[in-house]
Write a protein that binds this DNA or RNA. Structure first.
Lengths: 354, 354
DNA sequence: TCGTTTTACTAAATCGTTTTACTAAGTAAA
DNA sequence: TTTACTTAGTAAAACGATTTAGTAAAACGA
C-alpha cells in the first residue's frame, strides 16, 4: 500500500485538511460580495436578477470548495435551530426507543435533529433538563411518558401525556378501547378472577389505564378484588419490578386465573414469579401484557398483549410538532388519539375448571 | 382555582412572557457596557479589577432577569458546540440504548448534549449522517457498532469498532476472554457438538467474535463442524433473525448439544425455534447468549450469557472523547479494552447422554 | 431624449456574544 | 514631580451568516 502523503488529493476528501471555507472567503475567490453568494445559494427572491452564468460560477465554486454554511452563524441570524428536544425517562426500556425511531424517521427527512435528555424520573432533572434544552434553543420539545414540570414557552407534544396544558398536544392511546380489548379477551376465555398490576405512580399512563380497565371490568360484570391488585414500585426498567409485584400478589394466596399486567416488561417479570410458584402460564394463569415491544413476541410463552403503535406515535409527534412550527397561529387539538390492537399469542388461554 | 391572569407575576416563571433578555439590554439596564458584564459573568481574568460591589450588581440583575447567554452567539464566537454526535444502527435493540445511557450519564454532568443519528445499516446514511453531524458542528463523534465511512476530521470513539483508523479510539470487549468464557463453560458442561450463530456481516463484532470463538474451541479440542454454523441475515433488530437462522440449522438434521448464539436477541429467537422443534432448553440443547441485555435475565429459561459492560463502555467512550477535546495533542491509545463476565443462568446445563 | 424600469450587483446592519486593545482616573514609587 | 502601576471600566472587532437598503449601468418606453 502506498504511503499516504498528507497532500495527496483524494477524491472525496479533497478539502479535509483545509479548514471549512467561509462565505466571505468564497466571495473573495469569486470576486463577488458575500451578499450575492448568499442570495444565489439560498435562492432568495432577489436571485432572479442574477444571470444564470454568475449563478453557475457560484454553484461550481461552492461545490469545488465544499462550502457549508456555518450552522451557528445561520442559526444566530435566523433565530432557528432546526433541533428538537426529546425528554424520556430512560432509553433502554424498549418503549421510548421505539417512539424515538418514529420521531427520527420523520425528522431526518426534514433536516431536523434532536437532543435527548433522560430524566430517570428524578424531580431535579425533570426541571433542569427542559431548561437546558430551551437554552440550547430547541424549537420544540417531544416528551415521552414524562410530566411537564416547566412553563411551556415553546411548542410541545407529549407522547402518553394526559395533563391538559395550554400549548401542549398529547398523543394518547385510545385507552377505553385498549382496556376493553384486554378485558373482553380475558372474559371470553372464561376468566372471572383477574389480578392486575398497576403501573408506577410516575408513569403517565398508570391512572388512565387503571380507570379504563376498571370501567371495562365493571361493564363485563367482573368483580375487582383489592387483594388482586398490586402496583409496580421503583424505577428499574427491567422485569424485576413486575417480578417483585407478582411475588407480593402470590403471597396473598388469593386465587386468580388471569393477570393483566401494566406492560410487557412487567408481564415478563410476572411470568417468572408465577413460574417459580409452580403456576404454569397459560395453563394455570393467563398473562396479558401491554405495549407489544420486541420482547413480547419471542418471550416464552409468547405474550398476548395490547399493542400500542409506538413508532407511529413517535412519527405523529414529530409531524405535529413540525406543523406547530409551520403554523404558529393555528389552534391544535389538545389530544391526538391512536388505536390499540389486541395481539393474541400464547400467554393467555381458555380457563378450564379443573 | 383562581383564574390565571396573563400578567400575574409567578415566582419562577416571572419572565416567561418577556422574551429572553440579551446581554446588551442588561448592560443598558445597569448603565454598564456589555463587555463588563461578560467579563464578570464569565469570571474572566480581567474580572479582578472590577470591584465586588459592581459584580454583585451585575449578578443580581442577571438573576433577576434570568439572563441566559445565547447559545448560538456564544458558540459562534467560541467555535464550540458542547455537543457530540452519536451514530447508532438503531435504538430499539437494547444494545445501543444501554451504551447511550452510559454516554449520557457522563455528558450530562459536563454540560454536553448529543445528537443521535440512526443509520439502519444503510450505506447512504452511513455517509450522510456523519456529514450532517459535522455540519452541525459536533465536537466529536461516538459511533456504536458502526463502521467509519467518512474522513475522521474530528475526534472519534468507536464502541465495538475494530478498524484501526488514525484518530479513532476503539472501545472493545476482550473478545479472547469472552470466547474462552463461553467455550469453556460449555466444555465443562460436557458439550462437544456445539452449533454457532454468527452475526450479520454488518455487525462490527461479527468477525472478531467468530475468530476468537474458533480459537477457543480449537484450544479445547472442540471440532467445529461447518454444518453447525449459521449466520444471521437481515437487519431486523428482533429475535426473528435468530429464529430463522436456527430453523435453517435444524433443517440440516445434524446433532448438536449446545448453541452459542451471536447475542441475546438471537439466542431468544433460537430458543423459540428449538422449542418448536421439540428441543427442550437446556435439557436437550444448551443455549448461550451474548451481551446480557435486559431481555436475558428474565427470559424463560433465563439466558446464560457473556455480559458486556455496555453502560461502562458508553461512559468510557464519553470520558475518552472529552479527554481528547481537552488534550488535542496527546496521543490516545487506539484501543481500550473492557472485560466480559460469564453470567450463568438456566439456558445451559450439563450434557447428559441419554 | 428624458424618465422609468430592470439588471446586476454591493455596503452596511444585524443576530448576541467574547475578546482585544484601549482610556482615564487614582495611587504608589523614585 | 514625574513615572509607573493599578483600578474601573469601554469601544470596536470578531465569529459567519442573512437581510435591508441601497447604487450604477443598461434597457425600455414615449
Amino acid at each position: 500500500m502506498p504511503r499516504q502523503s498528507k497532500k495527496s488529493p483524494e477524491k472525496s476528501f479533497a478539502n479535509a485538511n483545509s479548514r471549512n471555507i467561509s462565505l466571505k472567503e468564497l466571495a473573495v475567490h469569486l470576486g463577488l460580495s458575500p451578499t450575492s453568494l448568499s442570495i444565489v445559494l439560498n435562492d432568495a427572491p432577489t436571485a432572479n436578477s442574477i444571470p444564470q452564468e454568475t449563478k453557475d460560477r457560484i454553484f461550481k465554486a461552492a461545490a469545488k470548495f465544499n462550502y457549508r454554511p456555518n450552522y451557528f452563524a445561520r442559526s444566530l441570524r435566523a433565530q432557528r435551530s432546526f433541533t428538537f428536544g426529546l425528554l424520556v425517562p430512560e432509553l433502554s426500556d424498549g418503549y421510548s426507543a421505539m417512539v424515538l425511531n418514529g420521531v427520527e424517521s420523520v425528522l431526518s427527512t426534514e433536516g431536523f435533529f434532536y437532543l435527548t435528555a433522560s430524566h430517570l424520573h428524578r424531580e431535579d432533572l425533570l426541571e433542569h433538563h427542559p431548561q437546558m434544552l430551551i437554552e440550547r434553543q430547541v424549537e420544540g420539545i417531544i416528551a415521552v411518558d414524562t410530566p411537564i414540570r416547566f412553563n411551556p414557552t415553546l411548542p410541545i407534544v407529549n407522547v402518553s401525556g394526559h395533563d391538559k396544558i395550554e400549548g401542549v398536544t398529547n398523543i394518547v392511546l385510545n385507552h377505553d378501547s385498549a382496556a376493553k380489548l384486554g378485558i373482553e379477551h380475558l372474559y371470553e376465555l372464561g376468566h372471572r378472577k383477574i389480578a392486575f398490576i398497576k403501573g408506577q405512580d410516575f408513569s403517565s399512563d398508570t391512572e388512565i389505564r387503571w380507570q379504563t380497565i376498571m370501567q371495562a371490568a365493571i361493564e363485563k360484570g367482573i368483580e375487582i378484588d383489592d387483594d388482586l391488585i398490586v402496583q409496580l414500585e421503583g424505577e428499574n426498567p427491567s422485569p424485576e419490578t413486575g417480578y417483585a409485584a407478582t411475588q407480593k400478589l402470590l403471597a396473598r394466596k388469593k386465587k386468580f386465573t388471569a393477570l393483566f399486567a401494566f406492560n410487557d416488561i412487567s408481564a415478563i417479570g410476572a411470568i417468572r414469579a408465577l413460574c417459580e410458584a409452580d403456576c404454569r402460564v397459560p395453563e394455570d394463569v393467563s398473562v396479558l401484557g401491554f405495549d407489544d415491544t420486541y420482547a413480547a413476541a419471542f418471550h416464552n410463552p409468547a405474550l398476548t398483549t395490547i399493542k400500542q403503535p409506538l413508532f407511529e406515535m413517535g412519527s405523529l409527534a414529530a409531524k405535529t410538532l413540525l406543523q406547530k412550527l409551520a403554523e404558529p397561529n393555528r389552534h391544535f387539538a389538545q389530544t391526538l388519539t391512536v388505536e390499540p390492537k389486541l395481539v393474541i399469542r400464547r400467554s393467555t388461554a381458555q380457563f378450564s375448571q379443573k
